[in-house]
Amino acid sequence: MKDREPHPTEAEIQAWIDDRLAPEARQRVDDWLAAHPEEAEAVLRMQRADRRLREYFGTLEDDPLPEHWQWLLEPSSRSRRWRKRAAFVLLPLTGFLLGWMLRGHGLGQRPDALENALLAPAAFAHGIYATDRQRPVELGAESCRKLARWVSDRMHADIVPPDLSAEGLAFIGGRLLPSTDRMAVQFLYEDAQGRRYSLYIRRQGRGWTGIGPRPAQRVEGTVRVAFWRQGEFAFALVGNDGMALQRIARLLQDGRSGACSLRQASLQAQGGLQKL
């Protein structure tokens, strides 16, 4: 057993943090760290910081590609039909497939709080209620003000169902739902073809990573979820068409008026009630 092992070099310490040292060298550094607790603490701090960095950045997002990039990646054919087909093939390949493959590779091996508390419940609730043709909502669009008052009371915030008519979506109604440790509200919409979208809103939770102010998307089973945060709330928009979700999400972020104002022109001052 050697006494007085030399101080590991900076390079060795970094390789140790990255787990890229050969077993012998790793053992030497392990032993040295065990024998020098104060300096070991500095190394462990670096290791922890690195871990946080990887948690913040580690997963790949499957944001749809900006539309203006489509042309970059298709061959020089100029026909519109080609462009549409290329986009259709490209998005699922890069977004969905890549994300799906990478999920299995242990990038970000921690339990995914965002998944458990927002994405899965939103998708699940969509699956239950969006498919229900008889009673999809608790309170319908005709009781919009009552609905807004009810959810605002229970959620302790001023909440008005957003108006998505600019994207061709009619407001059907909403309900309250439990979401792990918090309450959530679900608003349901329908387009002219009868396809439904749900907007699921709850306060953000502890330890959530991977949710930002600009919408990202994930596939959850048979649906897609676009999700983002704004103020203290998290939003999950559920549907099937990724590009449509992105457009609707953008509309939600810019949107000002509520669906209730469509129903009752005599609604009192919108001022405070617009905030979500």
Binding site: L72, P75, L93
Partner: peptide, 14 residues
């Protein structure tokens, strides 16, 4: 090249 590029876009963006 074009088709291969597509798979690296998420990494490049990140």
């Amino acid at each position: 090249l074009r088709r291969q590029l597509a798979q690296w876009i998420p990494h490049l963006r990140r």
